[in-house]
């Protein structure tokens, strides 16, 4: 009985996959490529500008990240970022601006639930996993590197 049900479900899933409209892979990829590329070029241009003022490359890189984060969060606040990302897809999700957006979007949404358990907690609902996994990866790498070094 269960085996038969499983087979039926598999058959149905395949049928659904066949009749469901597919995303337009090519168009989506081109949009993501161009927007993502432009975000990086924009950051690079600012970085060059900062370096030309006599600031070292590493610090300039950090300043660029902070600027992009703030810009993205402001655009999210004004309700623009999600519209841009709907068009650009991964072009605006994968850059650090997408991370910044995922910090502020759920926080804004939970304003009515208070500034501690609403905004404060939800700030990390999407970004939390990124930080948890990223930090864990870094610490594991750090420990392994200590052992080898």
């Amino acid at each position: 009985m269960n085996m038969k049900k499983n087979q039926l479900n598999k058959k149905y899933n395949k049928y659904v996959k066949d009749i469901s409209p597919k995303p337009n892979y090519l168009a989506n990829s081109i949009k993501a490529f161009v927007t993502g590329g432009l975000v990086c070029v924009f950051g690079f241009a600012i970085q060059k500008l900062i370096i030309s003022r006599g600031i070292d490359k590493e610090t300039a890189g950090t300043i660029v990240i902070i600027l992009l984060v703030c810009l993205s969060q402001l655009l999210t606040g004004f309700g623009v970022y999600d519209k841009l990302a709907k068009y650009a897809g991964a072009g605006l999700i994968v850059p650090i601006t997408g991370f910044a957006n995922s910090v502020v979007a759920p926080a804004m949404e939970y304003k009515r639930e208070g500034i501690v358990l609403g905004v404060g907690a939800k700030l990390f609902s999407l970004a939390g996993p990124v930080l948890v996994c990223g930090y864990s990866a870094a610490v594991v790498i750090g420990i392994i590197y200590t052992l080898i070094y």
Binding site: N28, K86, A105
Partner: peptide, 9 residues
């Protein structure tokens, strides 16, 4: 997802 979260449907 939250309303202002950037994603594609």
């Amino acid at each position: 997802f939250p309303l202002e979260h950037g994603n594609q449907r």
